[in-house]
Write a protein that binds this DNA or RNA. Sequence first.
RNA 1: GGCGGAAUGGCGGAACUGGCAGACGCACCAGACUCAAAAUCUGGCGAAGUUCACUCUUCGUGAGGGUUCGACCCCCUCUUCCGCCACCA
Length: 814
Amino acid sequence: MPEKTYDHNQIELKWHERWKDDALYKAEENSSKPKYYVLEMLPYPSGALHIGHIRNYSIGDALARYMWMRGYNVLHPMGWDAFGLPAENAAIANKTPPREWTLANIEKMKRTHRRFAFSYDWDREVTTCEPEYYRWNQWFFLRMLEKGLAYRKQALVNWCRECATVLANEQVVDGCCWRHPAAPVEQRALEQWFLRTTAYAEDLLRDIAQLEGAWPERVLTMQRNWIGRSEGAEVDFEIQGYGPVRVFTTRIDTIYGATCMILAPEHPVVASRLPADLQAQAKQMTDARASQSPAHAEEAEKEGFDTGLKAVNPFSGEIVPVWVGNFVLMGYGTGAIMAVPAHDERDFEFCRKYGIAIRPVVRPVDGELADASTMTESWGDYGMVENSGPYSGMKSEDARREMALRAQAGNFGKPAITYRLKDWGVSRQRYWGTPIPVIHCATDGVVPVPDEDLPVLLPKQIQITGKGRSPLDEVPEFVNVMCPKCGQPARRETDTMDTFVDSSWYFYRYCDSKNSTAPFDTKKIDYWFPIDQYIGGVEHAILHLIYSRFWTKVMRDIGLTRYDEPVRKLFTQGMVIRNGTKMSKSVGNVVPADEVADKFGADTARLFALFAAPPERDVDWIDAGVEGIYRFLGRVYRLATRNTGSAGGDGGADAAVLRKAHQTLKKVTDDFDSRWHFNTSIAAMMELVNQLYAEEPRISAAAMRQAIEILTFLLAPFAPYLAQELWEEQGHSGALIRETWPDFDADLARETEAEIPVQINGKIRTRITVPAGLDAVQLQAAALDDDKVTALLEGRTVVKVIAVPGKLLNVVVK
RNA sequence: GGCGGAAUGGCGGAACUGGCAGACGCACCAGACUCAAAAUCUGGCGAAGUUCACUCUUCGUGAGGGUUCGACCCCCUCUUCCGCCACCA
């Protein structure tokens, strides 16, 4: 009888068809099983499904299947990028209305996904472009508006002339548009909607403690730095003829050393008090900074000019000049600083360049105050405060506290905390995304759309104008509305929301996707949340993963959830690299998932994605390597299909083979339960198969059947189609995934003898074979009894013997 | 500049807690099967030296030092690469 060959297409399509209308492990409501919510965010916002996506799926998918077979009630929906961002990209590329494209895309996804992971059947209706989802995005927005967490203000935004749209900060790469590397991003002042993430800065920072140990330390560090808390004080300097101008400083203890005040070029004082030529100079600085590559910001020469204005130091009463400096940022603190050149590196550089006085006021605890005339650099450490009126002789730490309290008492300042984190600009002038649900009325101002009028949907027919305004502006039936308050003609807001809004709470909606009266039912959330395991690329560390934490806290505060944090454990997987660059649609180096799946099958694609490297590490995609996995699956298939009958070998190798099988089962189980180093799990399976091939004539039919059954289980999380096929070949009819993951048999897995290397002075000289399980004394005795060892020790004095049971033996001789 | 990660054969990687370096796979070489090729199966495969041969010896985990009976693993110094942040007062 000719041997069967592994035909991945036939097998995968067969089970694809059979599983079509059977959600194999759709999560069960009200299950008594322990629950497990595993979710993936896809690695790159880069368009259609590619091999990087497969890698992401493969991890979550294998884990979900494993947990399911371990008896958990598993919820494992699909990551958000697959629906959200590809629509954006395709809409840009194809210039077609996003909604239609997205729906078509979803149809396509459903087909492809079926091949990759049948678990994605869960709630396919949940998509971020669905009208119901818009409704609840808008509902959240209105709640935030009520609580003052959403607001509108004029702000400078990144603008790409080529795209004719505003860009998020993260879409600006080296000062240029991420899609147009040659097009410098411009700054434009536009009315923008913001969400007040800064209101939760303290919360976001504090609750990082809850994530400690369960999230990668790297991600937590990035979030801490991104939030960037600094403790200090605000102080008013009275500008003569203008009024008080507030500065933020972390070193109020050095205030007696402040020899000038420096304003950001965008500071309001500049526009309201300076002559036209100086305003022009300030404008130039702003422009220069806008066009300069952020990568070189620090190397930029410090520039500035004297405004001619004078300010009063509230502590010393000293009158100091007011300057404008290009290194002072309007977006941080108050946009104005007191310059203390003696104790701040940047101030030192600036003041020395422009000949502004330098005055040290802090000395090392056991040292002298520096001499201003000989200083070559600033001294930024804490020490003893000198020449500072009543504060002289205090430690810096004490002076900081005392002076901040003094400022508060005198009503010219206060202790203050500043965050680097900025409010989240959510406005987009785009033709997709959730419309922001407000109406602009000439008499009533900004009027929220009443809840009962939600959702506000995008118009179906949109002309892409490229004119630098939202295309929605050009659609009269969308824009022209009646004011809900006064009934007079009004204009609808045409900004749409950042798609990161969608991704901020989609995982809640997955738990209750058809709810039409609320974003979700809190009781259903209670069962599933927090997410047990979230898997995704590290590039989301300070974007999506901050936004979604923020959103969860807002929902908690409006009573929708009881959780501080949405995700219990986070795993960040490595990127897929090809030809030295990370795979991305914009670079055009993607390996399309469909191609790999067509040629080798989805099982092979997934297995290889996991085999190439441990999941947390970046992996270089080499096409040739896939064939090795394909060969392996073919070997498994042939071995299993030719060993289904009762004919078998003589059984001489049964014990060894069953031992190997159970050791492999233990190894794979351990990998799932701890490290997720699936590359070694798969290698172990290969070893088992290699041994089965080598010993085939000496394995009885029963032992072979047992070994192959174990192998089938081991493959189930990684290669579900093949595993199911083998399950059927073995005479079973049901779904393998519904079987229980087997326990390994410790007795069968135990080695009977061990080969122990014998070292002399740390160098391996020989090996001895001993019964397994000898303790140190027995091992030593066995070694010294060995002929070869005795020969090697001939004529030498044994100083010491180190015996490590089961590992090795080292004889130290003279 | 700050923080974090990494460096092992021709390649991806393994060695889990200080105990046999190179598992497993790719590539390559040889053999079997075949008219032939593909597929498949079997064997070899870090470097240098050595033996007719079974072998054996030395070197070897980015560089240099240290700790230890023993170091890819721990400590110190350095090099290179990658990621994120970066004039944050």
